[in-house]
Design a protein around this nucleic acid. Sequence first.
DNA 1: AGAGATTTGTACGTATGTATG
DNA 2: TCATACATACGTACAAATCTC
Lengths: 139, 139
Amino acid sequence: MIYPRQPEIGHRVLADLLRGKILNGDLAPGEPFPSDRQLQGEYSLGRDTVRDAVAILRAEGLIVVRRGKTSTVRRIFDKQPIDLTDVASIESRMPTPDERDDQYIDEGVPVFVVRRTGKPEPELFAADRWYIGPSVAND
Amino acid sequence: MIYPRQPEIGHRVLADLLRGKILNGDLAPGEPFPSDRQLQGEYSLGRDTVRDAVAILRAEGLIVVRRGKTSTVRRIFDKQPIDLTDVASIESRMPTPDERDDQYIDEGVPVFVVRRTGKPEPELFAADRWYIGPSVAND
DNA sequence: AGAGATTTGTACGTATGTATG
DNA sequence: TCATACATACGTACAAATCTC
């Protein structure tokens, strides 16, 4: 067999396993996340399998990856309440790469799109640092 | 050189190109999205390049992909306003795979996490079908 | 029903580039 | 300078779901 498989542990299974470690605190926020090479060795997996698994966690916003640097488990920030004065509507979606660059938004982090009466342009708020709270309309 | 590159059209560039076609309506919501093979042939790219580009658009929620089926540009739904009675806070994040399965949420779609006074369990709302309406501040 | 083509999914390998430490 | 780590990109093979004839 040219390409032996290990069906017991595909990239989704590996992602589940690593997500579990993050969610149960085994891998805590801010801590280093295993490198591709480590994961390949530890689980006897190929490059794609590890990279696909890591890509899942990135898209979920669970880890932060930067070229040349050790990846880390995403930190959890204290969220600030969005000022709700004159709010007309709020949607949420994934930002475009340009928006992420402009506002330094990490992978896997959605944005609130806030529209206010009288203002044509919506404002964007990265959802890992902002929330919609009760503090609301008065100030 | 064994593996010639085409830096002019890497997977990010291809993603930008295809995103542009979606956002300007050249590829309209509900319409078929080109297959991997088509993209490989049309732009003379390898599998990884095309797949990585497509993965970017999936994570952004711009296309809907299902095994064995032709991919499509994501449809845009009429969004319903979330009932804001007794709302304590609303956050947004990417759902876990389990949450996506449970509630039939597509890839690349964030969820609103709505907490209400007196209810310990938050409710989830897929952000492609729900929004936060104007009744926010008072009620 | 069935056969074959199409399309996406999974998974292996290799080579090289770029950023960091 | 060198090692490490992630990024990009080529290739191959086979599996699984879907669609067409």
